[in-house]
Design a protein around this nucleic acid. Structure first.
Lengths: 235, 235
DNA sequence: ACCTGAACACCGTTCAAGT
DNA sequence: ACCTGAACACCGTTCAAGT
């Protein structure tokens, strides 16, 4: 709202103290929690700290720089399981708990997938994850396994983020599929439609279904990796 | 460029015939092939057909409507393997060939993942894919398996699209990791860094690596699904 | 050093007016 | 029916000027 800025007197005149970079980033984190990383503008961020857009540039930099700071903060808050867990437990824990954290900050998962360890806090996580795999016997394939597990999981969270940001995406899918529930000439489609019919009725069953499906996808990814480990350690 | 529009005389005065919705969509498809679905604006699309932005709205609708038309066209061009292939071959073919098509139109894969069978041409594909799984013995789990295979693959293509649209994302990752190649205190990270060092040197090995990795990810997804099938058909 | 306020070059979208 | 041309309400970013 323009009024929010217009209404604000100059910070000093209003008795407001000087801002710090941290305060700008904190405000960005709160906005991200509420509207997602693509759901706020520099102008809204400035309004949230009762300042002008140029103030954000002065303290932090352009939008990219603010986003990087938010990413760093969120990743730093991701729980890392204990080193001595069996590899499959370590990764299941990390991915499922990681989802819970990432989903609180829509849009972060997608950027983590594209930027990888550019975010400093991801470096330690990558090291842990790969060490756990190497100890388990994945050997030289550990890095590839790491990339598969992290990419596929983070991207799945990114997908959930998009659905959360625009619920009409799924309700439209539900509506389209509903029209094909009883098509006997397309039994595959009818099966898919009946699955959507069962899960998309109310908000709560949908949420539960999403959580179940993420776990299902993670378990499948871990199954796949287990198959590789069996082959690698057999010879 | 504004000049591109400014320079154009009114269509009739310039001897240009009236436009059709198809011509607008065709231009959008060409722009998507060149710059990706997020790489052109309504104004650029209008300029490409030597018209004003409002003309796009008149013939097709808002940006969403144009995007939907592009999605429909691209999906309609995706090759669908023969029905009688064994399930694993069918899916491997569909996903690998599908990637080749989708990658020619950056940004399409991501939207297909979020919109699913909202795109009409996806309905027949979903039906085929699920029927193949049901015939193989996946039973009631066929729809979930379909969702896992399609989501994970399309999202991986979406990730490649983002890297292609902004190469600096990966060169920055490469630069960050290069600094950790010889860190003995972080052996996992060092392993990841040496993988990037090997693959990110020139454009061609990177392209080959991406293609290999997609195949690796698809094979892992199919491995995982095979494990489920073994369990389901054993009892 | 920190902030103001305006400006610049863009967006997508709408609309009255023309032919 | 089809197109023009301008306008509206936004963006991110920059910058001279203030304190």
């Amino acid at each position: 709202m323009k009024t929010a800025i217009r209404g604000a007197r100059p910070r000093s005149a209003a008795g407001l103290p000087a801002l710090s970079p941290d305060q700008v980033v904190d405000a960005a984190i709160r906005l991200t929690e509420e509207h997602g990383l693509d759901g706020w503008t520099i102008r809204q961020l400035a309004a949230a700290i009762r300042a002008w857009p140029a103030v954000v540039y002065h303290h932090v930099g352009d939008r990219e720089a603010v986003v990087d700071a938010v990413l760093q903060s969120v990743v730093a808050g991701m729980p890392v399981p204990a080193d001595d867990l069996p590899w499959r437990d370590w990764w299941h824990r990390f991915l499922v708990d990681g989802r819970a954290t990432l989903r609180r900050y829509r849009g972060v998962a997608r950027r983590l997938a594209t930027r990888g360890p550019t975010v400093p806090a991801m470096l330690a996580i990558a090291d842990h994850g790969i060490r756990v795999l190497r100890r388990a016997g994945f050997g030289a394939e550990s890095s590839d396994v790491y990339q598969v597990l992290v990419s596929s999981s983070f991207l799945m969270v990114a997908l959930e983020d998009e659905w959360a940001a625009d619920p009409s995406l799924r309700s439209r899918t539900a509506a389209v599929l509903a029209a094909h529930r009883d098509r006997e000439d397309m039994p595959g489609l009818a099966a898919l439609a009946s699955l959507w019919h069962r899960t998309c009725n109310d908000q709560e069953t949908l949420r539960a279904r999403d959580e179940w499906f993420f776990g299902y996808a993670v378990d499948r990814a871990l199954d796949a990796v287990q198959v590789r480990l069996d082959i690698l350690t057999a010879k």
